[in-house]
């Protein structure tokens, strides 16, 4: 019985069904299924499948985002029943696009894949002032600050975030990743970023690796 309900929940996450996921999560809780099992074997495994499907281009961005929303709706039901220390936590990430830049699709893909892979994400949007990246990281006790820029003329905003951290003495507290259209490894090295990836799926792997390596 438990397996059936978990399987239905997992499938609902894969289908991006924002109504069915919280309903099935609640149903599983009522049936006495362990909240950790609901999280790990239902919601997380479903999200994992969606991430893999997106990477293989079997599904597209809309399906990825709908699954992300469904997953979040499920988490709202389950998390109150789980002790904080029991929640599997891969890391906390602040994502945003630099000041002067309003492009966000790349950032949104990265965010959706982070969520699908079990990261906690705070998306602070586009055209973000430098200090807001740092303030948000402080607020959620982030592991990573991920700074996106799509235009050549806005790349400098990535450097500004790192310079700001250097000058306030907070650089060692956070892993800084950069990404977006004209960003590349040389640029990341030049400005002193800790991580860069060409694609969102690769960026998720880099994020996980950097956290694991404890580069602080």
């Amino acid at each position: 019985m438990m397996g059936k309900e978990i399987e239905a929940l997992k499938q609902a996450v894969v289908n991006g069904d924002e109504v069915a996921v919280p309903y099935l999560a609640r149903k599983a809780l009522d049936a006495g299924v362990s909240p950790i099992d609901i999280l790990e074997k239902g919601i997380s495994e479903g999200a994992q499948i969606v991430g893999e499907q997106f990477e293989k281009m079997e599904i597209f961005l809309t399906e990825l985002m709908l699954s992300g929303e469904a997953m979040m709706a499920g988490l709202e039901v389950v998390l109150p029943h789980v002790k904080a220390e029991d929640v599997p936590q891969r890391g906390k990430v602040v994502v945003g696009t630099v000041r002067g830049d309003i492009h966000e699709i790349g950032k949104n893909i990265f965010k959706s894949l982070l969520i699908a892979n079990g990261f906690e994400v705070s998306d602070i949007g586009v055209d973000v002032p430098t200090s807001k990246f740092v303030a948000e990281a402080e607020k959620i006790k982030a592991d990573i600050i991920a700074v996106s820029a799509l235009m050549t003329s806005t790349l400098g905003g990535q450097k500004d975030v790192i310079d700001f951290l250097e000058q306030t003495g907070d650089r060692a507290k956070y892993i800084v990743m950069v990404g977006g259209g004209p960003t590349n490894q040389e640029w990341a090295d030049e400005i002193g970023a800790d991580g860069f990836a060409e694609t969102a799926p690769e960026a998720v792997r880099v994020a996980a690796k950097l956290i694991e390596e404890g580069r602080r």
Binding site: V98, R99, G100, D101, L155, G156, G157
Partner: peptide, 10 residues
């Protein structure tokens, strides 16, 4: 100096 959007550098 790296160009910054909406600044005199841009």
């Amino acid at each position: 100096a790296t160009i910054r959007a909406k600044s005199p550098l841009e």
